[in-house]
Design a protein around this nucleic acid. Structure first.
Lengths: 342, 342
DNA sequence: ATCGGGCCTGAATACGTATGTGAGCGGCTG
DNA sequence: CAGCCGCTCACATACGTATTCAGGCCCGAT
């Protein structure tokens, strides 16, 4: 009972009194099979609990109906955490893959490893989803190599940066601008930006540019002292806020390039006795779950993670099927919570 | 340049002046290959960016070096969220798989679908990792079927429930007991338990039993009015707390069967004007990230998610290699934060 | 010189599926 | 009645690797 040999299409064929190719055609729903024969085959297959051997099928068809999700994590962080925003995207990616009958492989990668050849070359996956913040310059060569090799992939990032058609991202500039306009509307005039403005981090760069644009639109002159570098961790946000306090700069609002930065910054500010939102308004970016449960609840620029995940997967599958889909710029939406008043 | 045919072991063989089997042997590190030949082959393979075709390899060897991670989600929740505790485990699972040279497939499943035959029968994976809370009775038949079919799998859950050797879990009873002893030590005497005590949810059941045990140890008589059903969501926790308030029962502490329940309950309590921890002490279970950032920070029974993930993967791989490893009961640790005073 | 035995390698084959090609059969047209 | 076509199906083969088996070679021992 227990460990029988797994049934093959030959077994089905023999029981059904047909040849193996007929079984294959019948089960794949191919046209040109007698309906009665098809029914008989399907019934026997179901009865034997037959499953098409994916390895054999992959070998024959030369594709795997599998996508690979590659996370690029900061190699310094050895622990097992994933950026919370990507967490939210993950569920959507998984579900969308399932809807399109694709399996999903998932792994962490270092920018420095040879991931760019390990998946499609080994025919593990038909396409790659690249996820992760990091110094974009480090990606560049690998992305180019991927593209030259004809590998199918999509990337979450700043759409405007490079390689149109393979990057999906949200409207970082628009989101940054909207946040800053909101702060201006609240009467804030000295708005600090926490998160690097360097073009090596294109998403933060775009958010910064939106911020600067809105400032200019409000007739405010940028003050370089109000821009502090930070990466996407609470610690970094806390440190950046501390640096801002230590600098003695005058500020009445903070636009953080991500929620984690904002949450870290709020902690520092509160510890230093600054009241939020009375003394300082804070706005984040992403709308991760922690944003709404922060105290006070964080006003933030929402990226629709579910839409993002879905778009990534469907764009990738489209590219694999040689039905190229253009780059998508996903909308953002400002979620106003109590932290900034009214 | 762009779209050459991918090199095969035959191509390598021809260039190296040997036969294909020799290439296979050399690259797999098999003994009995002339060192000089091996070096030549390795060099050529590297130069051509050759990768072993995984589909062909899988077909031949009849295993895939791949594990499948199956999440069982409440089918009612249509959105893309994953239980936060599993989130924390995920990173560890991914990393441990990589360390052991295994790929990882991930998918959502409904208890009712035919997942139990879809992965190993289709030879997509060598083994299964089952994750998810839910009515255990629904699992039972499927788990039995898996085991009878000789499928390799491990499950996160209550170790004591059934099928020793295939379940990894933490010491739920010990954790529940420790939490309640802590509350007793704070002088609390009327401790409510939020989370079903039904044996259909073995983990919650174990936590409840630990709680009851500690109560008995402290000479306290259980009050059925202080046990309110709840499942692992904030909403359910909030509703349970509301039910508790509405019942008019007297209570000075809450032990929630999970952090999400605790967080939801705290929200309700605070909205009702109860002060935490002055009026009511609250303890959760899991130590998800939100626990530490809740207000006030939540005292909770920590499950070591990283250890859990690692143990799951390594146990599964051990079972696949026919080196069975016994069931593991992982330790818990009480993390005391400010919420319960001192 | 012969023989036995390691050491290395090549020839042949199997893994299970998908697909190109052609054959048999019945019905239809001219 | 010959010829043709559409419908089903079987035969043969390819996908790229891993493994079994046997053979060639060289060395030392007899």
């Amino acid at each position: 009972m227990g460990m029988q040999r797994k049934p093959t299409s030959f077994d089905i064929a023999q029981l059904a009194g047909v040849s193996q190719p007929t079984v294959s055609r019948a089960l794949r729903g191919e046209a040109g099979v007698n309906p009665a024969t098809r029914l008989r085959i399907e019934s026997i297959a179901k009865q034997l609990n037959y499953r098409v051997d994916k390895a054999a099928s992959n070998l024959r068809t030369r594709h795997s109906q599998t996508l690979a999700l590659l996370f690029f994590e900061d190699p310094t962080s050895d622990d097992s955490l994933i950026n919370p925003f990507f967490h939210s995207m993950l569920g959507s990616i998984i579900r969308t893959c399932a809807e399109h009958d694709h399996d999903l492989l998932i792994s962490f990668q270092q920018l420095s490893s040879d991931w760019h050849t390990d998946y499609e070359d080994a025919r593990k996956a038909d396409g790659l989803i690249l996820l992760g913040y990091g110094d974009f310059e480090l990606y560049r060569a690998r992305l180019k190599a991927l593209q030259d090799a004809g590998t199918h992939f999509v990337r979450w990032g700043s759409v405007l940066s490079e390689g149109a058609g393979l990057t999906i991202g949200c409207d970082n500039r628009g989101g940054g601008a909207e946040a800053t306009r909101h702060l201006l509307g609240l009467g804030r005039r000295r708005i600090a930006f926490l998160g690097t403005a360097s073009s090596h981090y294109p998403e933060f760069h775009e958010r910064y540019r939106g911020h600067a644009q809105a400032l200019a639109g409000g007739g405010i002159v940028e003050d370089p002292a109000l821009q502090i570098d930070a990466i996407t961790t609470e610690e970094s946000g806390a440190a950046a806020a501390q640096a801002l306090l230590d600098s003695g700069a005058d500020f009445d609002a903070i636009l953080a390039a991500s929620d984690l930065i904002a949450i870290g910054a709020m902690r520092t500010l509160q510890a230093a006795g600054r009241r939020i939102p009375e003394d300082v308004s804070v706005i984040g970016f992403d709308d991760i779950p922690a944003a709404s449960s922060a105290s006070p609840p964080l006003t933030t620029v929402m990226q629709d993670a579910r839409l993002a995940g879905r778009t990534l997967v469907e764009t990738l599958i489209g590219r694999i099927r040689e039905k190229p889909v253009g780059p998508a710029l996903l909308p953002t939406r400002l979620v106003v919570r109590r932290s900034c008043g009214a």
